[in-house]
């Protein structure tokens, strides 16, 4: 029993996409640009050459926010989306009917369709691979060259993530929606 979350030192991100490949290789995610559990968000830079706005080209690593009040879980008619024992938002492939309500409800666009099972898939925090083997990091955290991510138990006051959130300023994405994400962006 834990309440897993992740802190992201997003200013470290260089958009190399090592996390995307590590995630796919670890979890057997389908190839294809539209099949991904995690990604790095980039937008085209603002300004005119050579007067460009550096800040406008921030790289934002993102994925399922594992919200404590997850809209995807609320709208699921078959209870396929559920919280597991570690408060990780999961999808039960046996229950999913691909109605895609959850995909529309998710404010973070974190869900896609796995063509093999024809069900919705998303980040699991490596629950059925690394965590099940007793490892304490996710594939994306482990491989990251600039160490953007720190994964851990938010309920454990001694965990590194708890310490980070106590000592560093941070924000959540679309906090105004009240979804209570468990991903925290460190500033």
């Amino acid at each position: 029993m834990a309440r897993y979350g992740m802190a992201l030192d997003y200013k470290n991100c260089i958009n190399c996409k090592a996390c995307e490949v590590a995630c796919k290789e670890e979890n057997g995610v389908l190839l294809g640009a539209d099949k991904h559990r995690i990604w790095v968000g980039v937008k085209e830079i603002e300004g005119e050459y050579p007067l460009l706005d550096i800040v406008s080209s921030t790289f934002m690593p993102s994925q399922c926010q594992h919200c404590d009040d997850a809209p995807c879980e609320m709208v699921c008619p078959t209870h396929a989306t559920y919280y597991d024992d570690n408060n990780v938002v999961r999808v039960d492939v046996d229950k999913c009917i691909l109605c895609s309500y959850c995909m529309n409800a998710c404010p973070y666009d974190a869900r896609y369709v796995d063509d093999r099972t024809m069900t919705v898939d998303k980040c699991t925090f490596c629950s059925d691979t690394r965590l099940e083997r007793g490892e304490v990091t996710t594939a994306c955290q482990n491989t990251c060259p600039t160490k953007v991510r720190t994964f851990g138990d938010l309920d454990d006051p001694d965990s590194e993530i708890s310490e980070l959130l106590r000592t560093r300023e941070h924000f959540s994405l679309k906090a105004n929606l009240g979804t209570k994400p468990k991903l925290f962006y460190l500033t």
Binding site: C16, A18, A22, E25, A139, T143, C144
Partner: peptide, 21 residues
């Protein structure tokens, strides 16, 4: 899977996208 080997001071526990691929 190819995972980073934490013991190497040069690469310091990381594998880039190519390393993973």
């Amino acid at each position: 899977k190819l995972n980073p080997n934490p013991r190497f001071p040069k690469s310091k526990n990381m594998l880039c996208p190519r390393g993973n691929a």
